[in-house]
Amino acid sequence: MPAGSTRVNGAPVDLSEVPDDERLLDTLRWRLALRGTKEGCRTGDCGACTVLLDGRSALSCLTLTHEVEGASVTTVEAIANGRIGEAVRDAFIAEGAAQCGYCTPGFVVALTGLLAERRASTPVSDLLEEMGGNLCRCTGYGTIGRAIVRAREAIR
């Protein structure tokens, strides 16, 4: 069994106790009590489970925990420790871009990864398109779209 370790929000995590078939989503929520990362569908469709792996957005519901051995995992709990994550969080608050809030961690993490990966000069239409992997079932996409635009402005 491939043992090893990973870092979650900067802290080392020993994976030797984690069963081989466990998903990263479950390790985060139930083993590490980081409940910010949400389970919406468990089939890759909704983006609620998005985390950053070495800075890149990934679906924790479709990732076996041992597959991220050696990587650095960032969840919504630590996303605002970085400059871009902080701007994204503030933009979501300023625009009131949440109703029930269930989808919000996924949006915040995915947008932070996206803005870090692409230049802030990326056209808004491209950013909106690239956020297509995140679904919201209640607040509507108007405020979320405005939060995306606001976050982009804030880091330019």
């Binding site: 890759g44 983006g47 998005t50 792996l53 890149r56 957005s57 990934a58 679906l59 479709l62 990732t63 995915a110 990864g113 996206l114 690239e130 297509g132 992997g133 995140n134």
Partner: peptide, 9 residues
């Protein structure tokens, strides 16, 4: 394909 999150893996 899928979404950016998906294409990262």
């Amino acid at each position: 394909v899928g979404s950016l999150q998906l294409r990262h893996r």
